[in-house]
Amino acid sequence: MTIEVKNLVKKFGSFAALDGVDLKVNDGELLALLGPSGSGKTTLLRIIAGLDWPDSGEVAFNGEDALAQGARERHVGFVFQHYALFRHMSVFENVAFGLRVQPRAVRKDDATIRARVKELLDLVQLDWLADRYPSQLSGGQRQRIALARALAIEPRILLLDEPFGALDAKVRKELRKWLRSLHHEIHVTSIFVTHDQEEALEVANRVVVMDKGRIEQIGSPDDVYETPATAFVHGFIGESIELPIQVEGGVIRLGDRPLRLVADELAPGASKLFVRRHDMLVGPPGSGAFEGAVQHVRNFGPVQRAEVALSGGETIEIDAPRDRELRAGDTISLEPRRYRIFAGT
């Protein structure tokens, strides 16, 4: 099942949750919608599910207009951040719900439903919880049951809204791996929303980065990390150093200091320079693009994180390997191994 979204606009009062979104999701892929809260990612997901309606734009499943159908007819599995399990039903009945509410003409008989629920509980490895109630389960178990319930209707598309957002870090990591292997097994076109970049980069085939109701970049996890398309993406994904610079007459300046960086083909004016923390190489004074004084050093396992006051006025944090110990008060030079410059402030 492919999903095609065209020029989607959704406003809540004067706030534009979606401001002209175009997106094509390929058959069988696992796509992550990544962005800060308020970026419109959940709204987009809910519109695809039919739980919200756009002010304008198109949504098509396999080329068919999906907006002509309600949530009930779309056959979309939806997993909520807070599980939304039916609190008065046992785990078994929760999973069976989608099968039991089918119109009588297509509804399976009770034995078939039982077998199918059993199969799904086996799939999420929780068959031993069938008789429990949602309140008796841990968060991770609830979310797996919610997933089994969504899969029961054999959905054409699986949508997950911050599926691991309410869980603690350890369970989250386990479920991430589990979700990826599950997707590998069942291969249903899936979209999941997250604000956690690590989650998006680890689980998804493709990542869509959103901000303020717009799509900033669509690409593979490697693409969005290695070649961010916009200043927002560079700042949002990975730990970046962000420096305000001025480009004039082929020279890049930080504050009043010219930097030893190539400024060819750059538009003059205020710009932003982005470097990953670990891409700043430390050298003896005078050897690199930046000069600075080390303020603080803390050790994090294999790296040392140093706060460096650059001559030019900014203070940055860098991650350096521990082969050469830095000390507060050292004067050093920094050379960005890789960097990107985006025009504008």
Binding site: A49, A71, R72, R74, F78, F80, F97, G98
Partner: peptide
């Protein structure tokens, strides 16, 4: 949310209300 879940699982309005 529970109502939304029920509807996305294919329940009608009445089924959602009563179940």
């Amino acid at each position: 949310q529970e109502e939304e879940a029920a509807i996305s699982l294919g329940a009608s309005g009445l089924q959602t209300f009563f179940r």
